[in-house]
Amino acid sequence: MDEQFTQALSIAGSDSGGGAGMQADLKTIQERHVFATTVLVAITAQNTLGVDDFVALSPKIIDEQFAAIANDLQIRACKTGMLADVTRVETVVKNLKKYNMGPLTVDPVMIAKGGAPLLSEDAVAVVRDELLPLATVATPNLPEAEKLADMKIQTEDDMIVAAKRLQQIGVKNVMVKGGHFVSDDQSSDFVLLEDGKSFWLSAPRVDTVRTHGTGDTLSACITAELAKGHTVEDAIRTGKKFVDATIRDGIIVGHGHGPLNHWAYRKVENDEI
């Protein structure tokens, strides 16, 4: 039998506007030359202006999606995005323990770009206590890191403390994203690796509202790189460059928080890699 093409899995919600969630994951993983598969957890009705509504899928169909993938495909890395509520988080955790889906990247999605909640308050503790200890990489933004680490983050030193707290919870590698520091002309993220190595990744901040799906895109790119066998550090560095390119070379879609340009990184690869 011929060797299987590299495959990765996104466990997330659907964004009808196409900019974030499952749709951003599929576009990103495809752009990284990896075959993308999906376990759909929730369906949202949203566009660039915001989230109008969402429906979480039944645990039964989530279980069946996992089983269908495990029975046929060879997943080498996976990621989580929107998980909606306690029931869905617990269902996903159960399946991640049951099946070997490779290294796990957790994007602890809690709030949409427009402010709509995408994770119930009571599910935050389940994400922290049950999902994060399974993660190879976690990529919280500042509000998410504050909730998961149970602290206020107002400085870069606070980001370092939060990363250490998340690692103590059980996450092997942590990337705390600093994009919410709007006063800074740089978007700087702090990375703490399992072996104790740490570093900052920075890129010039772009004055744009077209940043819908940045967290999904970053975590999906990291997942694709891990599926290809790259190290965590290399996967994170590629993810940062990929997202930076999608923002800098933007496209105009919709009238609110617009989506990224998911094929922009091809130019970076051709020019720099």
Rank of each mutant, 00 (worst) to 15 (best):
I75Q: 04
N261H: 14
L226M: 07
V93Q: 04
N173R: 06
D52N: 14
K152Q: 14
T80G: 05
H212K: 11
L260E: 03
V109P: 02
A264R: 03
D72G: 04
L26I: 13
L166R: 03
S120P: 05
R210F: 08
V124W: 07
G256A: 12
T87D: 11
V161A: 12
D207Q: 14
R266L: 00
A42I: 09
S183L: 08
D107Q: 06
D85R: 10
I111D: 08
A68L: 03
M159V: 11
H33P: 00
Q74F: 06
T91C: 09
V268E: 00
G17F: 10
A220G: 06
T91E: 00
Q65H: 10
L201D: 04
K172L: 12
I61M: 10
D271V: 02
L192D: 06
A138P: 05
D195C: 09
V232S: 03
I247N: 01
T80M: 05
P108Y: 00
P117T: 10
D63T: 04
G239Y: 03
I160A: 11
K164Y: 06
K177R: 06
L218S: 07
E64L: 05
L201E: 11
Q74T: 14
V176L: 13
A203Y: 06
R76N: 09
A24E: 11
K79W: 05
D15Q: 01
V268A: 05
G215E: 08
T211I: 12
Q30L: 09
V89T: 05
V106Q: 08
L260R: 11
K98E: 07
S198A: 15
H262Q: 07
T38Y: 01
S188H: 12
L218F: 15
K172A: 14
H255T: 15
E130F: 02
E3T: 11
E3N: 10
Q30G: 05
D216C: 15
I153Y: 02
K228F: 04
D207E: 15
E3P: 06
I247P: 01
L9V: 00
K197E: 14
H33V: 08
Q154G: 13
F66D: 01
D207P: 01
I111Q: 09
A123V: 04
E272P: 00
G229R: 09
E269G: 02
K27I: 07
A138M: 12
A12M: 04
C221D: 02
L226K: 07
A45C: 08
Q74A: 12
I236L: 14
D53R: 13
A67R: 11
I61P: 07
A135S: 13
K172S: 11
G215W: 12
K79T: 06
D185V: 13
